[in-house]
């Protein structure tokens, strides 16, 4: 599984490794489903090792956000490469997500 979870300061940091595409998205969604089942209040997703995200990957993140919102959970994305950042912009999703430059900042300011 290209996803590693880490507990830090009462929140969960997800490190995803590789591509978030049609092949890996279903597995990544399952990992998030476990956090959602536990009603995890704050989740930070670190993209520093993500090389590529396709539409199904973006849709998976949207679905995770949607599911988390049902119980008031919050999702934050960090360390997006310029290429992935611009993908969020092109698809107009950058306003939907809470995107923070660095993981450290994302954690310390996650109130």
């Amino acid at each position: 599984m290209p996803i590693r979870l880490e507990n830090k300061n009462n929140l969960t940091v997800c490190h995803i490794d590789g591509e978030i595409d049609i092949n890996s998205s279903p597995g990544i969604k399952k990992a998030f489903d476990k956090l959602i089942a536990k009603k995890e209040p704050k989740v930070v997703v670190n993209f520093s090792k993500v090389s590529y995200v396709d539409s199904s990957g973006l849709a998976t993140l949207v679905e995770v956000l949607k599911n988390m919102r049902t119980y008031g959970g919050r999702l934050r994305l960090t360390n997006l490469s310029p290429k992935i950042k611009s993908l969020f912009e092109i698809t107009k999703l950058e306003k939907l997500f809470d995107i923070v430059a660095e993981e450290e900042e994302a954690i310390s300011t996650f109130m």
Binding site: I22, K29, S55, A59, V62, E63
Partner: peptide
């Protein structure tokens, strides 16, 4: 094509459809 060729769940597929129609 997504229903036939991928293991994506329904909710995710519906979002992809909305993105493509947009």
């Amino acid at each position: 094509p997504l229903r036939e060729h991928t293991k994506l769940e329904r909710g995710v597929i519906d979002i992809v459809v909305k993105m493509k129609l947009e």
